[in-house]
Nucleic acid binder design. Structure first.
Length: 603
RNA sequence: UGCCUGAUGGUGUAAUGGUAGCACAGCAGAUUCUGACUCUGCUUGUCUAGGUUCGAGUCCUAGUCGGGCAGCCA
């Protein structure tokens, strides 16, 4: 059993980062644990981000802390408000009912407030008080790094005043040349030893817009010979005459990630700044910047973990964007995509994502998790929550010759056998019914339990039928099966206990409706498509098949958000875009496990 | 040939000097009005070589292999 991350009071997940946090809590290092989830709004969130969200919000909820949602929006050229909205929606969806009470937001429009901390001037970006967190969307919004531009700029000025930063006139290309290589030290910029006064003047003129993009930059003065590239006088500010989706046209200089991120963490009072391992080499710079500014409050620290990889999927923003733009998938929320919008539309519950995160754990080892684990968790989750219904994807008509036209035999179907006290619904057996074409074989393979000429099978919730005659058209295609219904094998009838090997699903021809069903399968047919630059050649040509199915009439008026198990087939959910009551459109979330005659690797 | 970091069954992880455990996958069986679920059993593992120790997956040394880092991206 793969458990949902434990509720308060039960054992919480353990990993090396939680161990560190627990130690800090034990020694009361911080008054309160504050983490953050800081996406850049330049793309949609995916299942990999879900791991990070679950870690950061999980640590917050396990320790009575908060986790701030922050847009890491320091590069106006790549970011867009569309992504801000999508990210906010996705985060709310993923943590709803689990950690929404820990979500750190701020009042709309709020910027860091001046305060005195430990006798020194300071700025602090507070989240709304815990009592207001119950209504996270009412008047509150995520934090934005761009709301800190004024303070970050002031910190840059401080660094200049301390002789720890300078304005450099090297071009981007020259800067690269001067930087050296991992195994070769860099060379000092000729502008490295400008006076404080000159740096202050130049930096002010950068801000005033006197210079074109790329003409100058602000750099930290650290060590051009450091074995760590990120300590070789890294850039702090660049000139970009671009409007910003959140900050508007207030700025033409923008801080880079390394400078903005650690300071954003500080301003928000973050205690544990958790990121992925590619930032490990940046940590000395993170510490250098914060350590150089004489900041009055406790400093945040950075910890790194390995990002999630799932087999048969790609996660990189570049590749996801390519899939969307090339038309390989329809949109960012295409149900085949591992985006949170996609998996949500696919019908995967947020709880399954949380349980996946708990199941894979947190380490620094670069691993690839078997998609089968995710699929297992999704099935396990849906199995207990999904109402069962009958649907036939590829119908074959059966005529029950011993039933009169218009005759209706009342039967009772169980809604969910997993419930402690299962409820039922009535269904009707009629003269004409549809069964799955897979469930009849004129020439059955060995150990075939389903219907065959002269054979018997049970129609689930109804009775056993016997196949008397196979009717075909001129082309030799089966057009109908003429069968006898053994009505005394219905539940409660004398022969109810009669055993047959197979039980199949069915729908009444007259008491069912047509529905569009989208059968989704994995997007790629190799375990590591991302390992190949030409990853599109590994696309699974059969990742989407659309069929017109027959579904029981109780599904006729189902609203959006419906989630069902179609018995013996899989889990299906109504499509958020195209489903209408009266014109049902179902997406297959995932098939049921099928251990019979499944060619290896076929599914 | 620089720096950082990692390595436990097929996969993902646990064991914090004391019986290598769990989950997924796979295989076999039981059960079944879903060939699902559930249940039972089985196969498979500490990167290598030294060392410390009564005892090493764990500590030390050396090596091997993997990941990351040279955007005015994050």
């Amino acid at each position: 059993m793969t458990a949902e991350p434990a509720p308060a009071g039960a054992p919480a997940p353990a990993d090396f980062i939680r161990d560190i946090v627990a130690q800090h809590v034990a020694e009361q290092r911080y008054p309160r644990i504050v983490t953050r989830f800081p996406p850049e709004p330049n793309g949609y969130l995916h299942v990999g981000h879900a791991k990070s969200i679950c870690l950061n919000f999980g640590i917050a909820r396990e320790n009575g802390g908060t986790c701030n949602l922050r847009m890491d929006d320091t590069n106006p050229a790549k970011e867009d408000i569309e992504y801000v909205q999508a990210i906010t929606t996705d985060v709310h969806w993923l943590i709803d009912g689990w950690a929404d009470h820990c979500l750190g937001l701020k009042p709309k429009g709020a910027v860091p407030a001046a305060q005195i901390a430990n006798g020194k001037p300071d700025f602090y970006a507070a989240s709304v008080p815990p009592s207001d967190l119950g209504h996270p969307t009412s008047g509150n919004e995520p934090f934005y790094a761009s709301d800190y531009f004024e303070q970050i700029h002031a910190y840059a000025v401080t660094l200049i005043q301390k002789g720890l930063a300078y304005v450099c006139d090297l071009s981007p290309k020259e800067t690269e040349e001067y930087r050296g290589a991992p195994d070769k030290p860099g060379r000092d910029s000729p502008y490295r030893n400008r006076s404080v006064a000159e740096n202050l003047d130049l930096f002010a003129r950068m801000r005033a817009g006197e210079f074109p993009d790329g003409a100058r930059s602000l750099r930290a003065k650290i060590d051009m010979a450091s074995p760590n590239i990120w300590l070789r006088d890294p850039l702090l500010y660049r000139i970009r005459h671009t409007t910003h989706h959140h900050a508007g046209s207030a700025w033409c200089i923008y801080p880079l990630y390394d400078f903005a991120h650690c300071l954003s963490d500080y301003l928000e009072g973050i205690t544990h700044s958790i990121c992925t391992v590619e930032f490990e080499v940046h940590r000395p710079l993170y510490d250098w910047i914060l350590g150089s500014l004489d900041l009055p409050r406790a400093l945040p620290h950075q910890y790194e973990f390995a990002k999630l990889n799932l087999s048969y999927m790609v996660f990189s923003k570049r590749r996801l964007l390519h899939l969307v733009q090339s038309g390989a998938v329809s949109s960012w929320d295409d149900p085949r995509l591992p985006t949170l919008a996609g998996v949500r539309r696919r019908g995967i519950p947020a709880s399954a994502l949380r349980r996946l995160a708990a199941a894979v754990g947190i380490t620094k080892f670069d691993s690839v998790t078997d998609l089968a684990l995710f699929e297992h968790i999704v099935r396990e989750d849906l199995n207990v929550t999904s109402q069962r219904r009958l649907a036939v994807l590829r119908p074959v008509k059966i005529v029950l010759t011993n039933l009169a036209p218009g005759e209706s035999v009342a039967c009772t179907a169980t809604n969910n056998p997993q419930d402690e006290t299962p409820t039922t619904r009535p269904i009707n057996l009629t003269r004409e019914v549809f069964i799955e074409s897979d469930d009849f074989a004129e020439v059955p393979p060995p150990k075939y339990f389903r219907l065959k000429p002269g054979g018997e099978v049970r129609l689930k919730y109804a009775c056993i039928i016997r196949c008397d005659e196979v009717v075909k058209d001129a082309a030799g295609q089966v057009t109908e099966l003429r069968c006898t219904a053994e009505l005394d094998t219905r539940a409660g009838q004398p022969n109810a206990d009669k055993k047959v090997k197979g039980t199949i699903h069915w729908v009444s021809a007259s008491n069912s409706i047509a529905a569009e069903v989208r059968l989704y399968d994995r997007l790629f047919n190799v375990p590591e498509p991302g390992a190949d630059d030409d990853f599109l050649k590994h696309l699974n040509a059969h990742s989407l098949e659309v069929v017109t199915a027959r579904v029981e009439s109780s599904l006729k008026e189902v609203g959006s958000g419906g989630c069902f198990q179609f018995e013996r087939l899989g889990y299906f959910t109504t499509d958020t875009q195209d489903h209408r009551p009266g014109f049902p459109v179902f997406n297959r979330t995932i098939s049921l496990k099928d251990t019979w005659a499944k060619p290896p690797g076929a599914k």
